[in-house]
Amino acid sequence: MTPDRRTLLRFDPAGLVVACLLLAVAAVIWWDTEALRITSVYGVGPKAIPYAIAAGLVLLAIGNLVIAVSGAAPARESIDPMAVLLILAGLAALIALIAFGGGFIPAAAILFAATSTAFGRRAPLTDLAIGAALGLVIFLLFDKVLTLALPEGPIERLL
């Protein structure tokens, strides 16, 4: 980071984003609570606490904003976005496979391989095999022996 950019960034942009998000959540709560039609006959109704929480969020948004502008952005190490995206892609693949009936074992294999690649291993095929073996052991142990229903796909139905 160059010196003049640091003087420009006299605030923490993350704090600004957090403040905006908090305000947005408060607005959603407000909107959702407005739509409630039934209130209790006695005591406090279902709207009171959501309104209180929304109000608290607004105050916290201000608090986060104050912190963000009063200090310079703390030094944060750059991150490895590829690693994060790889794991998220692995999770997304797992969810998609399970949603469309691909079964637990291939889903576990893909997540395993994606994660270990994100952590720097460069042997995706080996890791796919290890992940599949792990998925198989889990499936046999939990679904077959302990009768816990794990998602089934073409492979699991053969077992």
């Binding site: 797992l94 395993f112 816990l148 229903a149 794990l150 998602p151």
Partner: peptide
């Protein structure tokens, strides 16, 4: 480390499916 965390994630998703078998639950986990 790669295997440790890969294993953690596999078990974490499996535990979630086991408690509540639904794609919505897995999406919330992510």
């Amino acid at each position: 480390q790669p295997w440790l965390y890969a294993g953690i994630l596999v078990f974490a998703t499996m535990g979630t499916i086991a408690a509540k078998p639904s794609v919505v639950e897995l999406t919330m986990l992510a």
